[in-house]
Design a protein around this nucleic acid. Sequence first.
DNA 1: TGTTATAATGTTAGCGCTAACATAATGTTA
DNA 2: TAACATTATGTTAGCGCTAACATTATAACA
Lengths: 345, 345
Amino acid sequence: MRKRKGAGRPTISDVAERAGVSTITVSRALRDPSKVSDHLRRKINDAVRKLNYVPHSHASALASTRSNVIGVIVPSLTNNVFADTLRAIYDELYQGPFQVQLGNSRYVAKDEERLVRTFLGQGPSAMIVAGVDQTDATRELLENAECPVVQVMDISDDPIDMMVGFSHFEGGRAAGVHLVQKGYKRIGFLGARMDPRSHRRMEGFKEALRSGGRYDPDLMMTTTDSSSVSLGGHLIEQLRKRRPDLDAVFCNNDDMALGALFGCQKAGISVPDEMGIIGFNDLEMMAASYPSLTSIRTDRYQIGKRAVQMIKSVLDGEAPEQKIIDLGFELQCRESTMRPKSKAR
Amino acid sequence: MRKRKGAGRPTISDVAERAGVSTITVSRALRDPSKVSDHLRRKINDAVRKLNYVPHSHASALASTRSNVIGVIVPSLTNNVFADTLRAIYDELYQGPFQVQLGNSRYVAKDEERLVRTFLGQGPSAMIVAGVDQTDATRELLENAECPVVQVMDISDDPIDMMVGFSHFEGGRAAGVHLVQKGYKRIGFLGARMDPRSHRRMEGFKEALRSGGRYDPDLMMTTTDSSSVSLGGHLIEQLRKRRPDLDAVFCNNDDMALGALFGCQKAGISVPDEMGIIGFNDLEMMAASYPSLTSIRTDRYQIGKRAVQMIKSVLDGEAPEQKIIDLGFELQCRESTMRPKSKAR
DNA sequence: TGTTATAATGTTAGCGCTAACATAATGTTA
DNA sequence: TAACATTATGTTAGCGCTAACATTATAACA
């Protein structure tokens, strides 16, 4: 007679036996307590504690075709922007029943599609993905996922399911408006990687420059290289070589802005007098730099937190108050664009 | 007669039927191909492709008491140091059969213990944890885990299983030796959070100062606040207030060093002439700053890569060449400690 | 008072795969 | 040539939980 060796730890049968009920009643007590009488619930919880019972996640997922995992896919692991959102997701799920399954799509839509397919094949409780530029296949997979889906970090009026983010276009526009209003004249753009969100920032920025009569396509500098502080310094050096008249730049993120600042310092260019610099996201270092750097502030932590709250409310059976949450952004004006009035000519 | 609804996708039975073999032969063909004849393997692989079969990870994990997950626990999600290592882990597992389950211990040993317990309860294929300062319970859990375990980011001669890292003590000592050799005299330390690794750096640093006759306990400044660029500026400002004679600092990480640089610039202190600054880890921005910042370089990417390679070799049935890999560190000397010789008195 | 609905609990079977044992064909050694 | 070993494949049962259906007691309603 064959004997299968289990994992050795207490199972739901052990709890049921000790509490004097059937296994499905134990399962109900843990998963849907309102379906079990107070009396039995107490006996069951007592048995769970005494036996130190922990539900077997794989068995539960197999039987119910649903796991206790929240699938999260980010385009970068080393980009501080996503790190803040990820930290909020983890904080919000702290000591709760869910686990995070993290995927890295490397800014590649096809990689994201493959990860989504893999994750969905494992029946997650919910999915969180970045942005609004998924492939058609990814979109279809997520629409048919039968679990809550939240897109984060961007905004549109056509969500797959739910969405928390802000408008990159408007954020870029606000940067452009700011530089024009500060009186800068030959205003440039430094962009790295140029993923869809970076593109939207640039388009919004351009629109603001056009409106202000300051748009010069020759001053828009982009590269598909991944973003870094060094790259910011390198790009502004190159741009200034071609166009020594450049007097302000909007960088598509803070690392680039910091690098642009260092680049100016190396070249003896005064910030903000001879060069205005504005970044995006407002990472913690922007306030600490010397001079401090202006940035478009985004609330990445709140994005992650709200995303999980939306998921939790749906899993609790409630429709979320809003399917789309626009957390907006905020111009954080600091020394790097506070040029003296006399220079605004 | 009851009818259970499955997930709807093809199962191993479908593949077996199409290939004309039993289910366990299909399982063997996918998991242990050497146990199946060439002929049958080809038929099975053909059926897998035709049916677009993907093994059900939960069923496999339940039946074998082992999953295809690599559990990774880091103390911080927003610390760039771990982000580099994490990126290497993901890169090394790219498009392979394993998934990452990421846990955030928040620098709390008890949280790490709880996460290790939860992860091990799900039968991971391997575990990667940070450092060498686990609780006794965590250590015991991992020793009895019956899967490969790698400790990363630190080094000791008493690994739980395997280890890839470097000596923080020696790294700190190298920083101290460097500052003494450069002729700095009143040398301080700026430390945040003060987790075990930060402590080791500080102890190594102190030893170097003692040896060089430059140790002044009054110049050792630490806080349990979490590290940031702003905090680095704040701490050096405070230390200089108390001790205006301070002429160099070793910061326990690069963010702090960058903040110290900004703090000096704000106060009109010349770096490296009036103040030497050295950081730890050598993040990308250290080369880009103005002046560029000296740092103790650690190869965080290589740590993650080697950790996964060790795991893969064990899972492939080979003993790793080394159970302990010390990747060491390297002093990256830059402008911030290149003080002119005339100042070395 | 009888009928219908609801709530609480139990039973059966199965979700999909694989451990453990079984069988048959082939190879090796004395 | 017989005995033993190895290789390849199959069968049985179960890993641990829960969907789906069943049963019973109690409540609500006409």
